[in-house]
Design a protein around this nucleic acid. Structure first.
Lengths: 364, 364
DNA sequence: CGGGGTAGTTGGAAGGTTCCAATCGCTCAT
DNA sequence: ATGAGCGATTGGAACCTTCCAACTACCCCG
């Protein structure tokens, strides 16, 4: 029962306790099948008695793997409102299940973007990275690929020259769903409020809206763009709602901030959101359920994204049960529209049942 | 110039390159003053030439310190809307400046709350913890104190029996500021909407409101409570606003969700927020600037909190330049009210200047 | 000129683990 | 009976660093 002097059990002390060699204890942990059954239980008992847990630093030194996954957090929240929270938790949970831990780091020098990554690698602090917010020709991707570092990014390689492992949310499918939902509610003139052209994510969300209109045989509705700021969104929405004779009866937006801008514009015009003009947002940020009326919004399945990221990463990491895929793999997951008052016909009392294929807030 | 075969420089390889012993290279890194100037530059040159960075795992094994700080993230966002984002980033940045990294973990078994902490300690994965969301008699505090683990919590020990190092935001000062601001706007009947009694944080925010009323010689205004949910908040607010003959002209709230509930209630009653009844929230969540009208809210200085947490932790960590304080130290930082339309007299156009002592959104 | 002190530098050992090659004790086929 | 073959177990070495004690010049003082 006696532990080491400083109270910490080691392989050696367990071995003594169980009357076996060091190596046998190590085998009991990593390859139990090679031990005879009775030796195994004897070692197990010693491990339990001493409360032994392997020293991770010694393992890492010997094996050359830290079993830590690096995730960079940005100074300005790029994943808006609570998105990072959810993603982070799901990622931490997922990696733990694979025996890995999550190391969160902040960029150290804004001028040399890569130095932080290089440092964590050469000091052998982390084995792999999860990247978010990658853009076309992102230098991090080339840098890490060159070193053979396992990397999975949350976000597609939009450029043709980038190829790497990724998981992403199908934004186009999200806006497509929004249009489907609006069409089912009887809407025919469905506008789009997006970000200025040139952002991959924004263009994708717009494409889903456009494709859905075509699929339903509807004419391309009016559209406008605004940067991610409330006042700009409101101004753009005012233009959209007053620009032509036949006002759109619904507006699909590329973000919750833009959608809230539309709500404000409607309020200013004396129109009722939901009843007169339906609105949908994107991201299902906390603000969506707090707006008046509550905002229908496309919710990203971040838990699922994180699980997929960990799964793909797991195949790349050295502990792999099977060889890693030769070709970069991509996973696209489907978001879900959460329907609230802003897109229901009779908005204020919401006595009607929502369409069955879309979850309501209660069961989302 | 030649590096090790696998491309990774070690102390040994640097020593060969510089024609000195291993130990001298180590000294060059940790105690440069003991080396003769010319040896130092020779070693430095070799380090640069080989791109040497010390292997953190070997260091950790030898010294018994991992230089990793553990932070648990909760499954449900307890730090609401974007608060975690800001705190996390500031914490990561701060710890890096002290040579530490941040390890984020998710609880593994909800039944045994402590197992995750014990595991990270016995495997020597982390040296210290930052706790959030501690409550009276939190078992984690006793457990970690018993092992002598350095701990700093974001949150005061509300109970008399808990004593540990902590950093917290002075919530009472925040609501006090809100009242000051409202009084300066001419308000006299200032109500409070808080959480049900019994939450330490909530009671503290209420106390600040009550104290401020006394300080201004105003009678205790009406108050109500509601749990952190929009519909409950709205209902409570309706009661507050229609309950008595002389309606309050301002409502101070314990959270942004509660404050948005008040805004909804006002809208339903046909009253104009800001113009007829002023409202303030707490946390300055993203939803605050998106509400209509934009919500004045008390902003927690999370960057400052994180910096203080790291500073206090720094004194406890083994690398200390001075011995750690014998008595647990506490730091209380002041939040700041961000004034927006919901608490300005002429709300809709906002042509007036805000009071000088409170920052507006632009300079916040 | 010898001995004590000091600044600078050095090699051995240890920290806890896993990898590798070797050994031991058996069984089975020859 | 003996050696090949196999399952189970073992000790030595290595991973890279820091700690420790010792060593080498060298200067200064008596």
């Amino acid at each position: 029962m006696a532990q080491t002097i400083d109270g910490r059990a080691t392989l050696e002390s367990v071995a003594r306790e169980a009357r076996v060699s060091r190596q046998t204890v190590s085998n009991a942990l990593h390859r139990p099948q090679v031990l005879s059954p009775d030796t195994l239980v004897r070692v197990q008992r010693a491990i339990d008695a001493l409360g032994y847990r392997p020293n991770r630093n010694a393992q890492s030194l010997r094996t050359g793997e830290s079993r830590l996954i690096g995730l960079r957090v940005d100074p300005v929240p790029t994943l808006s409102g609570g998105v990072l929270d959810r993603f982070l938790h799901a990622l931490a949970e997922g990696s733990r299940e694979h025996g890995y831990q999550l190391l969160v780091f902040a960029p150290q020098s804004p001028d040399d973007e890569l130095s932080g990554y290089r440092d964590l690698l050469t000091t052998m602090t982390v084995d792999a990275f999860v990247l978010t917010n990658t853009h076309q020709g992102d230098p991090r991707l080339g840098f890490l690929a060159e070193r053979g570092t396992p990397v999975v990014s949350f976000g597609r390689p939009w450029g043709a020259e980038d190829d790497h492992h990724w998981v992403d949310v199908d934004g186009a499918a999200g806006t497509h769903q929004a249009v489907d939902h609006l069409v089912a509610q009887g809407h025919r003139r469905i506008a789009f409020l997006g970000w200025p052209t040139g952002s991959d994510v924004g263009d994708d969300r717009r494409a889903g809206w456009a494709a859905a209109l075509r699929a339903h045989g509807l004419p391309a509705g009016p559209e406008a763009t605004a940067a991610e700021a409330l006042d700009l969104a409101r101004a753009a929405a005012l233009g959209l709602l007053t620009g032509s004779a036949d006002r759109p009866t619904a507006v699909v937006c590329a973000s919750d901030v833009l959608a809230v801008g539309v709500l404000h514009a409607l309020h200013r015009l004396g129109l009722r959101a939901g009843a007169d003009v339906a609105v949908t947002g994107f991201d299902d940020s906390p603000a969506a359920s707090l707006s008046d009326p509550a905002l229908s919004s496309v919710r990203q399945p971040l838990e699922q994204v994180a699980a997929e990221v960990v799964r793909v990463l797991g195949a790349l990491l050295p502990r792999r049960p099977m060889p890693p895929p030769e070709r970069p793999s991509g996973v696209l997951v489907e978001p879900t529209l959460v329907v609230r008052e802003s897109s229901r016909a009779r908005a204020t009392e919401a006595t009607d049942r929502p369409p069955a294929q879309h979850p309501t807030e209660e069961n989302a």
